[in-house]
Design a protein around this nucleic acid. Structure first.
Length: 286
DNA sequence: AAGCTCTCCTGATGGC
DNA sequence: TGCCATCAGGAGAGCT
């Protein structure tokens, strides 16, 4: 499941293999993959043709390809199972190939958006003056962004009447964190997922942010997390970070700090993994 | 109005 | 063997 580290790995792959290439043609094989492009698939293809792609950017889990001769960008979100693959023309179509982009050069490769569950997609949008696609202006900076404001984040947590994991997953507060890295960072910080944010102290917020950054940087260093081969990087290679997870997916396995079995709890139509000893529940729990 | 729940989708898996 | 339920979950619409 692509979160910030996995999306960054894809961005780097696109920077190497796709940047500065000019689009010759595109093909939308599944309309749902461009559903965020309101004007539809034909308009998406028409407006892409003939334009050159600049340096790919990323904020949180969103990445975008600026079109150098316009003020627009191709915005991509991988959803749960999306992949951006650079493949030789001759490679057989993937079962869940949704969009194909061909280029006006002789490199012999094309860009493919492959997505089994179709939660992800591509779309074209005008940029804001600072080069961000306008539809993601509400997405907060991510914790690896040098301009992320730690103090403002702490104050926002204090103002909220919610719990810490909900806040970590709220992309308007901090972006790029999904279910996996939220559980990992909370385990490292020894914080229970239902702890209220309103009474977090500045040192606790600082430690939590530090662990979010540490776990994301560790995942980036080995190319991201992959559980079920649904996620692969731009060349089709899986990351290895799943071997290093401490909480997520480890139900009944011993906590690597205290050997207490990790527990899984249903939470918001998904799961939370935590150590019941290291991460004590708040006194007043919902 | 902030906070929370629901919904979209496909395929693997498990119980009976 | 086949059928149905469950699970995976990002993010925005919609509700309270």
């Amino acid at each position: 499941m692509p979160e910030l580290p996995e999306v960054e790995v894809v961005r780097r792959g696109l920077e190497r293999w796709i940047a500065q290439r000019t689009v010759a043609d595109a093909e939308v094989l599944h309309p749902r993959a461009v559903r965020r492009h309101i004007a539809g698939a034909d308009d998406f293809v028409h407006r892409l043709k003939g334009h050159r792609i600049g340096t790919p950017s990323r904020r949180g889990k969103y990445l975008w390809l600026p079109l150098t001769d316009t003020s627009q960008s191709v915005l991509a979100h991988l959803g749960m199972s999306g992949q951006l693959l650079v493949q030789p023309h001759a490679a057989p179509d993937e079962k869940h190939l949704r969009i194909r982009v061909r280029f006006a050069d002789t490199l012999g490769t094309e860009l493919r958006f492959v997505d089994q569950r179709t939660f992800g997609g591509l779309s074209l949008h005008d940029n804001t003056p600072d080069g961000l696609p306008e539809v993601i202006a509400h997405i907060a900076r991510d914790p690896l962004d040098p301009l992320f404001d730690d103090e403002a984040f702490h104050q926002a947590l204090r103002r909220r009447r919610t719990t810490v994991k909900r806040a970590l997953l709220d992309q308007s507060l901090i972006s790029g964190v999904g279910n996996i890295y939220a559980d990992e960072a909370l385990w490292r910080a020894r914080i229970h997922y239902e702890r209220p944010t309103a009474n977090l102290t500045r040192p606790v917020t600082a430690q939590l942010l530090g662990h979010v950054r540490d776990v994301m940087n560790a995942a980036l260093a080995v190319g991201g997390t992959s559980f079920d081969s649904l996620y692969v990087n731009v060349n089709g290679e899986s990351g290895y970070f799943d071997r290093s997870l401490d909480a997520y997916g480890r139900e009944d396995l011993p906590c690597r700090r205290c050997a207490t079995p990790i527990r899984r709890r249903p939470w918001m139509n998904r799961s939370s993994y935590f150590c019941p000893r290291c991460q004590r529940a708040p006194r007043v729990s919902s």
